[in-house]
Write a protein that binds this DNA or RNA. Sequence first.
DNA 1: ATGTCACCTGGTAGGTGA
Length: 254
Amino acid sequence: MKLATWNVNSLAVRLPQLLDWLAANQPDVMVLQETKLTDDKFPHAAIAEAGWQAQWFGQKTYNGVALLSKSAATEVVRNIPGFADGLARVITATVDGVRIAGAYFPNGQAPGTDKFEYKLQWMRALRDWLEVELARYPKLVLLGDFNVAPDDRDVYDPVAWAGQIHCTDEERDQVRKLLGLGLVDAFRLFDQPPKSWSWWDYRNLAFRRNQGLRIDLILVSEALKPAVQSCTIDKAPRKNERPSDHAPVVLTLA
DNA sequence: ATGTCACCTGGTAGGTGA
């Protein structure tokens, strides 16, 4: 089983690239973030024609998530139950016996801002809800744009980024609390090339200089960990014309 | 170099968010 996550930064702009990527990679499940589409504009017909069913949950201008799957997605949940923030950030469903939560974590802007506090609150709510989900669905994957670089290995310049957004102790503590549920960062189950990033700023020629962060993560539950066969970042779409600023991350399960 | 991209409102640019 192959699962993937990609922050497409506008599905209206990136649909052709998504269809190319699906055709070339044939994932069983793919979650998308920052579709930036209201539900009536979601391109479900083009995606169905390519061979994937879709569940989607969006809003105007910001956020928006989707879950594509080869086989049917059941027990679909939108957002974090009990945490009503009105923003389209999470879509969860069961596919082929695996509970899959695709998430677009808040950016958080900067430490000390209201958006930063909201990010921490949101992460606490996600943790509390996933604890309940895991009890019911031991085979669970949480994947998406976490907007947190868990470790200094995940940052091209850890000194410059120390204490900055995506790299604060508070955000990293919240990621550790998610891992404390019995989840593991699948990317780090394997030897990886140093300087592996999933996001590069559009500015400053950051991709050319390989100045990025690894903020797109795939966490798997203990029950699934023995089945993990690989976890890789696909930099190829970042080399496209009009790329997303994020690269897809791919997990294969036995 | 606060250096790009995407989207909005309401316009032939400026603001917001990332």
